[in-house]
């Protein structure tokens, strides 16, 4: 079932009309085909217009859209012979972080990512994509394994943030994230991260301190959620839209700030409206990024990755 966002109401109404007309066609009226065509082109135009100038807060909503393809959808579409691997070898298997080896356009890769789930049952199983320390420790384990076998690492970021809870604190959430960042930065193999939905703070950077960082056109990446920021600085989460604008969390902003390397265009109306198209575009962008990193020796790769992050915030700003 298609879910419509608040600002998509006019589009939803038109699409509803088309649906009604289609039912009439079934009853044998021929003229209606014309009408449907007209309405459809109107929908397309409206979608194009709306999505061309989404506000930062609207982008946050698109990035969190329940129908938006998630990590495992991309894995299924892009990775052949995928073998999921499980567990941190210390405490538990955290399904908020998925990962494993597989073949991506001919080469063996290690894939890690956060999975939010697509229905109640899977959302609960994956803890809505919010990892606990064991999730990050699993990511560390898989990255170290990739390093040992010379496999490039692909990381798909989609999380509201690391899970805040007593158990997380007890088992060292902060330490796990810090080590995960450290592991990303130590790798001697190429690593490409893509923010496919929400890049939520420390939970996101834990698996995104990579050679190349890509972002889908309507994804967001921020130090704090707009709601959290608003409730602290405006003292009301009702100001989330203001916070979203002030934080500059869109892919376009981040490209400008030099924090990400590339924006991957989404289909008209967002990734959820044309899954096969976004799978292909992200696949191409990932392949392209990996090709660009090929042939660099491990030490050079690591040194470049470090320099890139060391420069962050100092370069390209006035």
């Amino acid at each position: 079932m298609q879910t419509f966002l608040e600002f998509e109401k006019p589009i939803a109404e038109l699409e509803g009309k088309i649906e009604e007309l289609r039912h009439l066609t079934d009853q044998g009226d021929i003229n209606i085909a014309d009408e449907v065509g007209k309405l459809q082109s109107k929908v397309d135009r409206l979608l194009r217009q709306t999505y061309a100038k989404l506000s930062p807060w609207q982008k946050v909503q698109v990035a969190r859209h329940p129908n938006r393809p998630h990590c495992l959808d991309y894995v299924e579409a892009l990775i052949e012979d995928f073998m999921p691997l499980a567990g941190d070898r210390a405490f538990a298997e955290d399904r908020a972080v998925v990962g494993g080896i597989g073949r991506f356009r001919g080469r063996t890769v290690m894939v890690i990512g956060q999975e939010k789930g697509h229905d109640t049952e899977s959302r609960v199983r994956h803890n809505f994509g919010m990892a606990k320390p064991e999730g990050y420790r699993k990511a560390i384990r898989l990255m170290e394994m990739a390093d040992r076998f010379g496999l490039p690492v692909l990381s798909l970021v989609d999380t509201a943030g690391a899970y805040p809870g007593v158990a997380s604190e007890e088992r060292g959430q902060a330490e796990a994230i810090a080590r995960s960042i450290e592991t990303c930065l130590r790798l001697k193999v190429p690593m490409v991260a893509a923010v496919i939905g929400e890049g939520g703070s420390g939970g996101a950077i834990a698996i995104a301190a990579s050679d190349r960082v890509l972002m889908l056109e309507h994804a967001v990446y921020s130090v704090i959620s707009p709601e959290g920021c608003a409730s602290i600085l405006w003292r009301s989460s009702a100001n989330a839209a203001d916070a979203a604008a002030a934080l500059r969390l869109t892919a376009q902003d981040l490209k400008e700030l030099g924090v990400i390397d590339r924006i991957v265009a989404e289909p008209v109306g967002g990734a959820h409206r044309n899954r096969s198209e976004i799978f292909a575009s992200l696949g191409d962008a990932l392949e392209d990024s990996l090709d660009g990193l090929r042939g660099l020796d491990g030490a050079a790769l690591r040194a470049r990755r470090r320099d890139k992050f060391l420069d962050m915030g100092q370069k390209g700003l006035s």
Binding site: A178, L185, A209, S222, L249
Partner: peptide, 13 residues
């Protein structure tokens, strides 16, 4: 914003 988040990898380095 995001530039403060980027201080995390930066300080780790």
């Amino acid at each position: 914003g995001i530039l403060s988040l980027m201080q995390m990898p930066r300080t780790v380095i």
